[in-house]
Amino acid sequence: MQLETYISDLLYRYDCVIVPQFGAFLTHRVSAKVHETTHSFYPPKKALSFNEQLQTNDGLLANYMAEVEKIPYQVAVEKIAKQVKAIKSYLVEGKTIALNNIGDLILNSEGKINFEPSLHINYLTDAFGLSQFTSGDITREVYKEKVEKIEKVIPLTITPETRKSRPYLRYAAIALIALTIGGFAASKLYVDQIENQNQLAQEEANEQLDAKIQEATFIIDSPIPAATLTVEKPTGNYHIVAGAFRVEANSEKKIQQLRDQGFKAREIGVNRYGLHEVVYSSHIDRNEALKALRTIKRTHNREAWLLVKAVD
């Protein structure tokens, strides 16, 4: 089944992949962990789950299929619907649907879909190449005892003869420290003088620049009159929805297509599912919006619908 391959590809890049009229495969990040008993280290991963309630087509899966197979978007939507129909029929017959690299689907006694995710694949790209491993115990106390035994046998001391044998080194060190401190003091004084001179020069340059700006401001004899532009802003709480897209680039592409066809299309924001909503137009009057919706459903898109929403 090619559908499972497309879903698996998208799970690496997105946290939600919706299969229209079937459900959504969701991922959430799980941090790395250590098993205290077995001393096993597990890398971070994306845990996979299934939500049967999310069935509205967001265009992600269909757009990806259309791009890979070089087919029109609507053809991709029809192919997905056909495969979903086949999956549902197998589930009703009591069969288990095994989706490679994703997991197993089966109907329970209540007619709901149970999902068992596959555990052998990690969709978190940040953890690529990381695998589970087990570490042995760290024996810190053993090495500590060995070091203590060595110190008892070979003590580390400094004899008085060593200290008195080279008294001139002490005076050389004191002289070196004194020279270093004197050099730092002289260097700091020189740097401070340079910074003060730079500050005075900068202030003088700023005063000259302000004078030039004021002079240039007051010698304008014929100022250009201010221009007033009137920009028409789409308003209204009645919106005719063309689609909702998870990828913003797809929504921008849809807007351009609709504008080329004469519609006042725009994006009205992101809904609670994280989808970018694209509308044909927005209207203040409800009757006007319903009239426009009937025209669009009859001549352009039977799936268009009316959304009542306040948009800034």
Results as ranks from 00 to 15, higher is better:
L307Y: 05
K95T: 04
A173K: 08
E288I: 01
P44L: 02
E93M: 02
N287D: 11
P223T: 08
Y73C: 00
A175I: 14
N122W: 14
A24Q: 05
E67G: 08
A98W: 02
Q74W: 03
Q202F: 10
L169V: 03
Q132N: 02
T125Y: 15
S251H: 03
E215F: 11
R29E: 14
I97V: 14
D260N: 14
V142Q: 14
N250L: 07
I268V: 01
S8H: 04
F115T: 10
K70N: 10
A172Y: 13
H276P: 00
P155F: 07
K70A: 14
A173F: 12
L179S: 03
G243L: 13
K188N: 02
L290T: 14
R272M: 10
L156C: 06
E93A: 10
V77R: 05
Q257R: 03
L91A: 06
V278I: 03
T56A: 01
T134G: 12
D260M: 11
K297T: 03
T27C: 09
T228Y: 11
K88V: 04
K45M: 07
Y64Q: 12
T180E: 11
I284H: 05
G111C: 03
V75Q: 08
E204L: 07
G236V: 09
G136R: 02
I7L: 12
Y12I: 06
V191G: 02
D137N: 12
A178Q: 02
H300R: 00
V147K: 14
T180Q: 03
T139P: 05
T162V: 09
N63W: 05
T162F: 15
T235F: 05
